[in-house]
Amino acid sequence: MQYKLVINGKTLKGETTTKAVDAETAEKAFKQYANDNGVDGVWTYDDATKTFTVTE
């Protein structure tokens, strides 16, 4: 399945996608991506759209 990440950071904004077997695996990949880019915020997930959002 394909999952999307929407980033609403202080210095980084945008979107990225990943393919993963489940939401938990996608979340780990997205959190690593956010961490690598210095984004630390509040996470939400919408199962209907398979979209994670992180807001600083």
Rank of each mutant, 00 (worst) to 15 (best):
Y3T: 01
N8I: 15
E15G: 08
N8W: 13
A26Q: 01
Y45R: 02
A34I: 07
A20P: 02
F52D: 00
Q32T: 09
M1Q: 14
K31R: 14
T44N: 08
T44Y: 07
T11M: 11
T53Y: 11
A26F: 01
I7N: 01
Q2S: 10
A29E: 11
A29R: 13
Q2C: 14
T25E: 13
K31G: 03
T53L: 05
E27F: 15
V54W: 02
L5V: 03
A20H: 05
T44H: 11
K4V: 12
K28E: 07
T49H: 07
V21C: 10
L5Q: 01
N37V: 13
N35S: 14
M1C: 12
K50H: 13
A20D: 03
E56C: 06
V54C: 07
L12I: 13
T55K: 05
L5Y: 01
T55I: 08
E15I: 12
A34C: 14
K19T: 15
E56I: 09
T16F: 15
V6T: 05
V42N: 08
K31Y: 05
E27G: 10
T17Y: 15
A23S: 10
D36K: 10
E56N: 05
K31V: 06
K10A: 12
V6Q: 06
K13P: 06
T16Q: 10
G41E: 01
V21Q: 11
E15V: 13
L5D: 00
A29F: 15
Y45M: 02
I7M: 07
T17R: 06
W43I: 03
A29V: 15
I7A: 03
K19Q: 14
G14M: 15
D46G: 02
G9E: 03
A20I: 03
N37S: 08
K13M: 09
K50N: 08
N8V: 14
W43D: 00
V39R: 02
A34Q: 02
T25N: 08
A29S: 10
V39L: 10
D40Q: 13
T18N: 05
D40E: 12
A29C: 10
N37L: 15
Y3P: 01
K28N: 08
A48T: 12
Y45F: 07
V39Q: 03
V54F: 03
T25A: 14
W43S: 00
T51S: 04
D36Y: 08
V42G: 04
T16E: 06
Q32N: 08
Q2H: 11
M1A: 12
E27P: 00
E15K: 07
T17C: 10
T17D: 05
Q32W: 06
V42E: 11
T25Y: 06
V21R: 11
V21D: 11
T18H: 08
Y3C: 02
F52W: 07
K10P: 08
K4E: 03
D36W: 07
Y33N: 02
D36I: 10
Q2D: 13
A34L: 10
D36A: 13
E56P: 09
K31F: 06
A26E: 00
V6G: 02
K13H: 10
L12E: 06
T11N: 12
D22Q: 04
W43H: 00
N37M: 15
Q32M: 09
T11W: 14
K28Y: 09
T11C: 14
E24S: 11
K50R: 14
G14T: 15
I7R: 01
A29G: 05
Y45L: 02
D36L: 11
K4N: 08
D22H: 04
V54M: 04
G14Q: 14
E24V: 12
Y33G: 01
E27I: 12
T51P: 00
L12A: 07
L5S: 01
V21N: 13
K50G: 05
T55Q: 06
E56M: 07
T25P: 03
A34P: 00
A29K: 10
G14C: 14
G41P: 01
K10Y: 10
T44E: 10
D47P: 14
A23H: 09
E56L: 09
G41T: 02
N8R: 11
T44Q: 09
T53R: 05
T53C: 05
I7T: 03
Q2E: 13
E24N: 10
T44A: 09
T17P: 02
T49P: 02
Y3F: 12
L12H: 11
F52M: 02
Q32Y: 05
Y3L: 01
N37D: 03
K31A: 05
A48S: 12
Y3D: 01
N35Q: 14
E24Y: 13
G41V: 02
K28V: 10
T49F: 05
L5A: 03
W43V: 02
Y33L: 06
T18W: 06
Y33K: 03
K13G: 06
D40Y: 14
E27Y: 15
K10F: 12
K28S: 08
D40N: 14
D46H: 06
E15T: 13
A48W: 07
A29M: 13
E56S: 06
D40M: 14
A29H: 15
V54Q: 00
G14H: 13
Q32V: 10
T16A: 12
T11P: 04
D46I: 05
A48G: 08
V6N: 05
T16S: 09
Y33D: 02
E56W: 11
K19C: 14
N8C: 12
G14A: 14
K28H: 09
V21T: 12
T53P: 00
E24L: 12
A29N: 10
E56F: 07
E24D: 10
A34H: 02
T49L: 08
G9A: 10
T51G: 02
A29T: 14
N8L: 13
T51K: 03
D47F: 08
N8S: 08
V21H: 12
V54H: 01
T18G: 04
D22L: 04
K19N: 14
K13R: 12
K50M: 10
V42W: 10
V42R: 07
K50T: 04
F52H: 02
I7C: 04
V39Y: 06
A23Y: 13
Y45D: 00
E15Q: 10
K13A: 09
V6C: 06
T17M: 11
V54Y: 02
A23K: 15
F52A: 00
V21S: 10
Y45G: 00
N8K: 11
T16K: 13
N35E: 12
Y45W: 04
A26L: 01
T16R: 14
G38N: 10
D40V: 14
D40A: 13
T51W: 02
E15C: 14
K10T: 12
K4A: 05
T51V: 06
N37I: 15
A26D: 00
A29W: 15
E56Q: 09
M1T: 14
Q2V: 15
T51N: 02
K13Y: 11
L12Q: 09
T17Q: 09
N8F: 13
F30H: 02
T11V: 11
D47E: 14
N37C: 11
Q32E: 09
Y45E: 00
K28F: 09
K13C: 12
Y33H: 05
T25C: 07
L12C: 13
D47I: 09
N37F: 13
L5R: 00
D47G: 08
A23W: 14
L5H: 01
K4Y: 14
V39F: 09
F52Q: 00
L12K: 09
F52S: 00
A23D: 05
E27H: 11
I7Y: 07
N35I: 15
D36C: 09
T53N: 05
T25M: 12
A48K: 11
K50A: 07
K50D: 02
T53I: 05
V42C: 09
E27K: 12
N8Q: 11
V42S: 09
V54I: 11
E27D: 04
W43T: 01
A48D: 11
G9I: 12
L5F: 05
T49R: 06
F30N: 00
T17S: 10
K19I: 15
Y33R: 03
K4P: 01
K31I: 08
T55D: 07
V42M: 09
K4M: 08
A26T: 01
V6D: 03
Y3V: 01
N35V: 14
V21P: 15
